[in-house]
Design a protein around this nucleic acid. Structure first.
Lengths: 117, 117
DNA sequence: ACCTATTTGTCCGTATGTATG
DNA sequence: CCATACATACGGACAAATAGG
C-alpha cells in the first residue's frame, strides 16, 4: 500500500496520514478485513515518528474506520454503505429546529461549529 | 483547585486527571468561565509530564467540557441549559455522519433538501 | 499451561512551531 | 514585539494485550 505525505506542508503529518489512509480505504486499495502496517513499520517507511502514526491510527479507530488493538494491529472495518440513519437524524434535527423556531441558517452554523470540535 | 492522582494505580494517569477534573467541575469547585491551571503548571504540581496533562485537557475539550486554545489555556465551559434538544440533534446528526463518513458538505445539502419539504 | 514474538498503550523528556493577548 | 500556553513531532523506555507454538 502506498501513501505519501509532505513533511513540510502546513497540514499536520498525522492528519495527512489520516486523510491518505481514508482515501486508500475508500478507493479499495485496502479492503475491509485487511491489516494496516504496524505503526512502527509505517512510521519507518514514511520516515516519521511512531507516535505520529499511532495518533493517526487512534483517530481512525475513534471514527470506527479501523479496529485497533494491542498485539493485533489495525484491521480495516467493514464500511457501511446504506445509511437510513442519516436521513433520520436530519429529519429529527429539522423537526427540533422547527419546534424551537430556529432558522435554517442558524442550524447550518451550528453544524459547522459542532463539526469543528 | 485540588486534584489527586495515584501514579501507581492501574488506571492511566491521564484518565485519572480527566475524572478528577470532571468531578471538580461538577462539584462547583471550578466554576464555568474559570481557567484551569496551565498544562505545564498542573503537570509540575502533580509531578507528571506535560503531555499527560495535555492529553487529559484534550479529552475534556473533545467532550466539550472546556475551551482549550493555544495562548489562552483551558476555560471551563458553560454547561448548556436552554434548548439542549437542538444541540443534541446537531450532535447526533454529526455523530451519525461521522460514523458513516459522510462529508459535512453532503449533510448541509441533505438539510436543505429536507427543509424544502 | 508456558513461553515468546509482535504490536499497541502509556509516559517521560525535549524541541520547535504558532495562536493569543 | 513579547510573554504565555497549547500543538505537533521527535526519540526512548517499559507495560500490557494478543497470537502462535
Amino acid at each position: 500500500m502506498l501513501i505519501r505525505i509532505d513533511p513540510r506542508g502546513s497540514e499536520p503529518i498525522y492528519q495527512q496520514i489520516v486523510r491518505e489512509l481514508r482515501r486508500a480505504i475508500a478507493s479499495g486499495e485496502v479492503a475491509a478485513g485487511e491489516r494496516l502496517p504496524a505503526a512502527r513499520e509505517l512510521a519507518r517507511s514514511l520516515d516519521v515518528n511512531m507516535h505520529t502514526v499511532l495518533r493517526a491510527y487512534t483517530e481512525l479507530r475513534d471514527a470506527e474506520v479501523i479496529d485497533l488493538r494491542r498485539g493485533r494491529g489495525a484491521v480495516v472495518l467493514e464500511q457501511p454503505t446504506a445509511a437510513p440513519e442519516v436521513g433520520e437524524a436530519v429529519a429529527e434535527l429539522l423537526e427540533v429546529a422547527r419546534r424551537h423556531r430556529i432558522p435554517l441558517s442558524r442550524i447550518h452554523q451550528a453544524l459547522d461549529e459542532g463539526a469543528q470540535r
